[in-house]
């Protein structure tokens, strides 16, 4: 079986997005990866302000962009779904 491409998860680490919820989300995603041993499936990264402050917190999962998700559990759900789609 060919190796699957890693799912890119990128959180905006700009002041506004960090304060609006990405600080919590980052902690959630880090422990989600660790607890489920997903380090080889997910490429976690961050980026600086890209001007989406007013709609923040801004997150990119795979090739989709998400704005305004303040509940970190939702972020995990989206990641789970994206992984399932990859598996399918």
């Amino acid at each position: 079986m060919a190796e699957k491409e890693k799912l890119a998860v990128e959180l905006c680490m700009g002041s506004s997005c960090f304060a609006r919820g990405n600080s919590t989300a980052l902690g959630y995603v880090e422990s989600y990866i660790e607890e489920n041993g997903l380090a080889d499936r997910i490429e976690l990264g961050g980026h600086l302000c890209i001007g989406e402050c007013n709609n923040g917190p801004h997150i990119r999962i795979g090739d989709k962009e998400y704005s305004g998700i303040t509940d970190p559990d939702c972020v995990i759900d989206i990641i789970k779904k994206a992984l399932e789609e990859q598996d399918a």
Binding site: T24, L26, G27, L44, G45, G46, H47, L48
Partner: peptide
């Protein structure tokens, strides 16, 4: 490049 190795609840990486 963003360095995710050190950050805390009130301080972004």
């Amino acid at each position: 490049t963003l360095d995710l190795s050190s950050w805390s609840k009130d301080v972004p990486p």
